[in-house]
Design a protein around this nucleic acid. Structure first.
Length: 565
RNA sequence: CGAGGUGUGGCUCAGUUUGGUAGAGCACUACGUUCGGGACGUAGGGGCCGGAGGUUCAAAUCCUCUCACCUCGACCA
């Protein structure tokens, strides 16, 4: 591309309405522009990056045996009713009516449509397995879009779906996709980890997430400092030592005025958090249930939801709790609370604990869980903490933050059953098809790369996905020798398939250098006064010194850098 | 959905308290000087101040309603 008369601009100042490094740089580089909250335009330069990421993903998907197709965005709401996901997605789903008031949605994800499409093809076990994918815009009405392309309401996702006759087949299809995903993120040069995750609204048996490690990540990655254990916080198992703690003594009431939180109690009594029983009331599918866990741990709503196979787990309003239980908010305790109590596994043997007295300004001490707490169920309902023991090897748990750029689900038969996608086995009996689904957020991946790869001058694109590989700066566009040499280099590189920008604008050199750096082009060639001696200058975006290179060698040199990148 | 904040030229912002003919920097145009790391000078162009009502002789400024965006929380594949 020759810059003159192209849709190309850069901004010198940060955008007022962007909140992350990546979104600011992408906006300043003229690659994207916010259109409304959580909705972005992709401008020419940004679109090139997006397409390059798509190309890599597409290549790996096809290599893994998947076929590309394209589904609509506009979908009858009915099919999400059938699968039960209209409720699961709730208000995140964009809804609209057609002129006859028939309800439609803008597809938030496409398991249903793919299952329906698969019915066209699948009759017999001989029709399985197969795998199909698409790049398509998804719509999710996020309560709070943020971080530029990272959490948006309309986004391009590559979604693939596998169809198998049984779990063994799914395992095989799944591992093919899993390998393809590793190839994709390796080629993109992303620093990522793969973690076990919650299946959430997707349902199914297993979910793993590909998480780009970076500080603005909204997911907490639970890692072990000793082995390769990696999990999303949502599902990381807490290994309870289950040891007995303390001796049994008579319960005693203690006066604790205005000490409502564990923190306040710790200060008031001078006792550490783990000696308290924290009692939280959640509304699980509408029912108030109390959860008892150690004072120094956070409740895990995903685990709670799973325990009850619930659609919603929410914290009720304080008034609602006090109406529905015998407790007083701030002084809640599990004894005689009047509702179902669930105990975290780690507390069921504890004695000599402090908990709320269900009475304003009072707590009770010497509570023995086995003796005093009548719990209906127990299980792992808390979040793992840094410093906890690794469930795998006993090493120490550490946290990192991640952006989920890809995920893989073993769906099983959830959608095939709901939508009646069945096949005839060899014995002529009907069985539901076993499905898997596999997503990669293309725009989010683009943002994650920028988030991980930038410096004070701007973006640093990896060679693979840079919008252009070479940026040719012509110092003086009125100098014929310079223009001629630059033009020649430009056409030679293009002929070799090395896409480049020729900056032929009437700008001062400094402006061109700054722009080249801001938009992150990996190689910069400067054609300037050295041309009289047959020399140009070469500089890599990733650093290193500027190098003088003979015009006759420059193409070969660039080819080499591109090849070795 | 709760709390708070912001909407003024393409961009980043001042002006609003105390009503009186719309400003700055960057960007843009012309000319001159400069010319290898976001140049300088001079002269210009461009905004009915998010929108709708209202108060007033007079509203960017005060009042009411509304829309959009942002932050924190709730929520979130």
């Amino acid at each position: 591309m020759k810059l003159k008369n192209q849709f190309f601009y850069t901004l010198r100042q940060e955008a007022a309405d962007e909140d992350s490094v990546s979104s600011n740089l992408l906006v300043r580089a003229g690659m994207i522009k916010k259109s409304s909250s959580g909705v972005y335009m992709f401008l020419p330069l940004g679109l090139r990056v997006l397409k390059k990421i798509e190309d890599i993903v597409r290549e790996e998907m096809i290599n893994a045996g998947s076929q590309e197709l394209l589904m609509p965005s506009l979908i009858h709401e009915e099919i999400y009713e059938k699968s039960g996901r209209a409720a699961a997605f709730g208000p995140s789903i964009f809804k609209l009516n057609d002129r006859y008031e028939r309800p439609y949605v803008l597809g938030p994800t496409h398991e249903e449509l793919f299952a329906i499409a698969a019915k066209m093809k699948v009759n017999s076990y001989k029709d399985l397995p197969f795998n199909i994918f698409q790049f398509q815009n998804k719509f999710r009405d996020e309560p709070r879009p943020r971080f530029g392309l990272i959490r948006v309401r309309e986004f391009i996702m590559k979604d693939a779906y596998s169809f198998d006759k049984d779990m063994e087949g799914l395992d095989e299809s799944y591992s093919k996709m899993f390998e393809a995903y590793k190839n994709v993120f390796d080629r993109l040069g992303i620093n990522y980890v793969i973690v076990k995750a919650d299946t959430g609204a997707m349902g199914g048996h297993l979910s793993e997430e590909f998480q780009a490690v970076c500080d603005i990540g909204e997911d907490i990655l639970v890692m072990c400092d000793n082995c390769d254990y990696a999990s999303n916080l949502e599902v990381a198992e807490v290994v309870s030592e289950n040891s007995e703690k303390g001796v049994e003594v008579e319960i005693e009431e203690i006066h604790t005025p205005n000490a409502k939180t564990i923190g306040e109690l710790e200060e008031f009594l001078g006792i550490h958090g783990e000696n308290f029983l924290k009692t939280l009331v959640y509304k699980v599918d509408g029912e108030l249930i109390a959860f008892v866990l150690p004072g120094d741990r956070q409740a895990n709503e995903v685990k709670i939801g799973k325990m009850f196979n619930a659609l919603t787990v929410e914290l009720p309003e304080p008034e609602e709790i006090e109406q529905g239980t015998n407790g007083v908010v701030g002084y809640m305790g599990p004894i005689d609370l009047g509702i179902k109590v669930v105990a975290d596994t780690s507390v069921i043997n504890n004695k000599n604990m402090i908990t709320g007295a269900n009475k304003k300004d009072y707590h009770i001490k010497n509570v023995s869980v086995p003796r005093d707490v009548k719990y209906a169920m127990s299980g792992d309902i808390s979040n793992i903490k840094e410093g906890d023991k690794c469930p795998n090897c006993g090493g120490n748990i550490v946290f990192k933050k991640g952006v989920e750029v890809g995920n893989t689900f073993k769906l099983g038969t959830k959608y095939s059953k709901a939508l009646d996608l069945t096949y005839a086995a060899a014995d002529n009996t009907l069985h539901p098809v076993v499905m898997g689904s596999y997503g990669i957020g293309i725009g989010r991946t683009m943002a994650a790369v920028v988030e991980q790869s930038n410096d004070e001058s701007g973006i640093v694109w990896p060679m693979n996905i840079a919008p252009y590989k070479v940026y040719i700066v012509v110092i003086k566009n009125t100098d014929e020798a310079q223009m001629e040499a630059a033009d020649k280099l430009y056409s030679e590189l293009n002929a070799l398939g090395i896409d480049c920008i020729l900056d032929d604008r009437k700008e001062r050199a400094g402006v061109k250098f700054k722009d080249a750096e801001l938009i992150g082009i990996p190689i910069r060639v400067t054609v300037g006064r050295g041309i009289s001696e047959g020399k140009v200058e070469l500089k890599k975006r990733t650093g290193g010194d500027m190098e003088e290179v003979a015009v006759t060698d420059i193409v070969a040199k660039i080819q080499e850098i591109v090849k070795n990148a």
